[in-house]
Amino acid sequence: MTLMTAEKAAPAPGRNHLGDLVLERKDALRLSYEKLAARCVDPESGEQTVKSSWLHRIATRLPVQAPDVPALRGMAAGLGVPLRLVQDAASAQFFGVDPVYSDTEAVRAMVYHFEEMNEEDQRKIQALIEAYKRA
């Protein structure tokens, strides 16, 4: 496991972005904390990066050590979401850093997926948004 060795840190007041993401994805994937932790494997090292107890603690708003980059990569793989989504959630929860473009997880996910599309698909999505805006 590759969590930072610093003291356990409580989230910034009123923030549980990463914990909420863990809980949301755990429920969506219908996995136990043990099975979810087993999926959290850093694609670069091939090592499991978080324990089930850590996932449970962060999802239930208990103090945890802030995850390091390998742990974030492993969590992205385990949760089945883009790494940027996990990074944003961790930055917001532990450091109070918010993405500029939106406060909601859904909008951030849409932005990430949009960035991954080819130019033709991006143009189609933009046209669809403009059509809804005019309606």
Rank of each mutant, 00 (worst) to 15 (best):
S53H: 03
V86S: 05
Q65A: 09
E47P: 01
L79S: 05
V69A: 14
V22E: 01
L128G: 09
A77S: 12
K26C: 00
A127C: 04
K133E: 13
R39W: 02
G78T: 08
H113T: 09
V100A: 15
S45T: 15
L62V: 10
R57C: 04
A127K: 07
S53T: 14
M117W: 08
Y132P: 06
G19D: 03
G96Y: 03
L128P: 01
Q48I: 07
W54I: 08
K35I: 01
L29E: 05
Y132A: 12
L29P: 11
R15S: 02
P82A: 13
R39Q: 10
S91C: 11
D42Y: 01
V41P: 04
S32Q: 04
K124A: 14
L29T: 06
P67H: 06
P99L: 10
G96V: 05
L29V: 06
W54A: 04
T104I: 10
V97K: 07
L23S: 07
V64T: 15
P67D: 05
R57W: 00
H56Q: 08
A131T: 11
A77M: 10
E47S: 12
R108I: 05
A131R: 13
A77T: 15
P82D: 13
K124E: 15
Q87K: 09
Q122N: 06
Q126Y: 07
V22M: 05
D27S: 15
A71N: 08
A28W: 10
D103W: 08
H17M: 06
A6L: 11
L72F: 02
T104D: 03
E119G: 11
R30W: 01
A12Y: 08
A135Q: 14
K133C: 11
Q87N: 10
E34S: 09
D88C: 04
V81Q: 04
E105M: 12
Q93T: 00
A28T: 11
P11E: 01
V86M: 06
W54Q: 05
E44W: 07
N16S: 11
Q87W: 12
E116H: 11
F95W: 05
G19N: 04
G80V: 11
